[in-house]
Design a binder for these strands. Structure first.
Length: 171
DNA sequence: AAAGAGATGGTCT
DNA sequence: GACCATCTCTTTT
């Protein structure tokens, strides 16, 4: 489920450099959801979404930006959670380097910005995020669950806009 | 501070 | 050929 990812860490650990951020905003997308990439069934693009949970689904948005999702459904379900925002934790230097002349508050506070700042791209699609020593992983460092949730409408979609499946953690 | 528009390319009809 | 799960820069209050 989407809220379960709030508070966890997205860690990118490669090229001898560790970058991480705490997930503070997500959106849920399911198979029976008109706004979801999986709505019309499996295609070449969304194949990862229909795979097992815990994999990274990355797509190209508006021809320019990459957006990262965590597959949350069982194999064949076509369900994923879009990572909308993280708070930088480790590797702030590297994140700033990838996002030149942006204020600190705008480094990873959006799905495209998050990918840019953390260095994620289409080439990373399909990565198993549950491998303890993998290059990209979701980590539960404990005690980081939000004290409460704020839900709201999803952003940037034109269908099923009334479905309040955007989740922001508050601490 | 808010609003508007352009960039840019894969995917699906 | 239309439609985007967005971002950034420029223009206007």
């Amino acid at each position: 489920m989407a809220p379960d990812l709030l508070g966890k860490l997205l860690v990118v650990d490669r090229d001898g450099e560790v970058v991480s951020g705490r997930i503070i905003e997500t959106e849920a997308y399911t198979r029976d959801d008109p706004a979801s990439h999986s709505y019309n069934g499996p295609t070449a693009r969304n194949a990862v979404m229909f795979g097992p949970a815990g994999r990274l689904y990355v797509y190209l948005s508006y021809g320019i930006h990459c957006c990262a999702n965590v597959v949350t459904g069982a194999d064949g379900d076509g369900q994923a959670v879009l990572l909308r925002a993280v708070v930088p934790l480790e590797g702030l230097q590297a994140i700033r380097r990838r996002r030149p002349s942006r204020p600190d508050g705008d480094l990873t506070n959006g799905p495209g910005k998050l990918c840019a700042g953390m260095g994620l791209s289409l080439a990373d699609a399909g990565t198993d995020l549950t491998r303890p020593h993998g290059p990209i992983r979701i980590v539960d460092d404990g005690g980081a669950a939000p004290t409460h949730l704020v839900t709201g409408p999803r952003i940037g979609i034109t269908r099923a806009t009334e479905t309040p499946w955007r989740f922001r953690g508050r601490w």
